[in-house]
Write a protein that binds this DNA or RNA. Sequence first.
DNA 1: CTTAGGG
DNA 2: CCCTAAG
Length: 676
Amino acid sequence: MHIKLILKLYHTDFKSHAPCTVTCNIEINRINRFFHPKQKGLIIASLWLMFFLGMSIRRNSHKKPSAGSEICPFELLAAVAGKLLQESEGSASSTSSEQKEQINIPKDNVKQEPLEIKLKPARLEDLDQGCCAESQFVPEPSILELKLEPPLKDSLHSDNDSGLEHASIVTTSDFFKEIGTNVKLEVSDSKNIVIDTPSKSEGGCYSHWDLCDVNMDATANIPKLIEKETEKLQETCVELNKSYSSVHVPFYSNPVPSACFQRHRDNNVKVGIRDDDENCFSYNQHITKMKAFRLQSCGGYRRIRKMLTSKYWKTAPKLKDYEISNTTSGGLKSFNQYKKYMHKREHCQSQTKSPFKKRKLFPAYVEETSSESISNLPERHLSKRVKFSIKSFIVPEVYLEMPETSTVGSLKRNVMEALTAILGGELHLGVLVEGKKVRDDNRTLEETGISLNSETLGFVLEPSLPEASPKQPPMSPPPQSDNHQPSSTSPDSPLTETVSLSNSSESKLEKEIEKNKEEEIEIVVDTKAKAIIPITAVTPEALSIVPLNHNNNNKLISKRCEASQSQRRTRRPFSVSEVEALVEAVETLGTGRWRDVKIRAFDDANHRTYVDLKDKWKTLVHTASISPQQRRGEPVPQDLLDRVLAAHAYWSQHQSKQNGKHQTELIQTLGTPVKV
DNA sequence: CTTAGGG
DNA sequence: CCCTAAG
């Protein structure tokens, strides 16, 4: 499938001669390659943007909600989505009967190989017909072009014009970038960005979308701007939905998006599209940051297959016999090691994109708008809100071995037994960030990077492993009732969680041994979020049951177990303020007393161990000795680096570790080494 | 448990 | 950040 949607928005200000262009390219082909076919949510998500635009055009140009017979952008997009999804389904599983539904669009287009859609009401004047004219599926690659009108100067509330009048900013929104899209926003008027949809229906030459009346100060980030815009866009869409509720759009296997529009209790409007594969994307308020789904578990599937066909398969008795038993810690450890080993393998494989069958989670991440560079804040005054939307949980991986001669029936039985053993027992919930398991329940969202590092967040179900999770005291066993947010106890994360879940478990024996039980759980945290980042961070890491065979299996098993125990911590770059504190402490304490440094300057930062501090110092010294160009990450003020060098020199000379009386001496010694 | 260093 | 050998 090679669908490429190109969407261009031309934002032209005819009042001034400062044209603004918003270009948005969505290459679905790429998406298709990068993500699991079943991750239709993403695809649909990307199409949503188009949808919004299409809706807008339509509304503006026709002012009538009726779908009519004409195909408008929305339908077009929907159709494409359908097509795309169908492809995906087709390749994924062909026998399923559930996917017989066809896209309700002209078939002549369905088969099209490279399909580029071009809607081009590029000019205001053409908008009206443009929309319709293009509504027929154009066999030829086409482009959707919309002209966006800038706001009227007077309609803006920008009174105090900063000196950035003609600053041109080009940026890329995470959202688009992540889904293979590029958004360029050029703003000639740095203070205001307004995106309008052209329409001659209004008195003037254009009508507003009412969505991008964003007025931000000149220093605001463009991304933030885009956020706001998208936000408004979202709202607009919801509104539109009302009038479109009767429109039947041939979204693949699923009637209408409107059916998915739901309202959340606390006025959180949720918009989502659900496909037949229960991939439901919920757009909570803001769609700004749409993160790509990370595939991380394809390896598992492959491995299973491989194992199945491997001639090295050992005869494996009943799974039961191998249930992770908490016999001896030694045994457990070895098991963990196996996990680790496998995990690493998977990590490598995860890079390769390939079709696989695994259900993913769709946690959504939301970040507060006013999020200043949070990472820089000395201490969090404002606690960000994080929003989660968990699509489903993956059942822990199950491994089993069987003799080649065993029957499919026995295979099924074994699988079922294994699953029952896992799911029947106590389940724990694992929280993954960047594919790494967060073990400490007491860490806050911030600390774990869930809020900051919005990359990936995932949840996995795991059987209760007595020994494996020692420091996790009383975690509510059933995942359903589990808040499972490590933040629930965190002081600075005043999150209000609403957990609504519709538990629909079903079992399905996938091709080989795989099997998933699904539980749709939706967790909405907070209310005031600005951006949503659907993420898929499922590590196949979940616990697996491996036949503990007598001999050489133990080795692997051992590795596996350890993985669940030693997940690499999430990376948390030191902020400038932290560096400052570190430097200060080292200046007085020296470089050989990291525990004291820790106590002195990072006593409250549980996630900074003295080893971390030592390491940080090491890197700081290094950083200070290289050219600024070679430095990466958040730049550390030069004066701090100077202090680092000075302190480093001093303490290495004074053989460091002594009492802490060096402070004065140090100061004197250093005198005023810091030359501004 | 801490340090000190290599990875 | 992790891992570990050495105090």
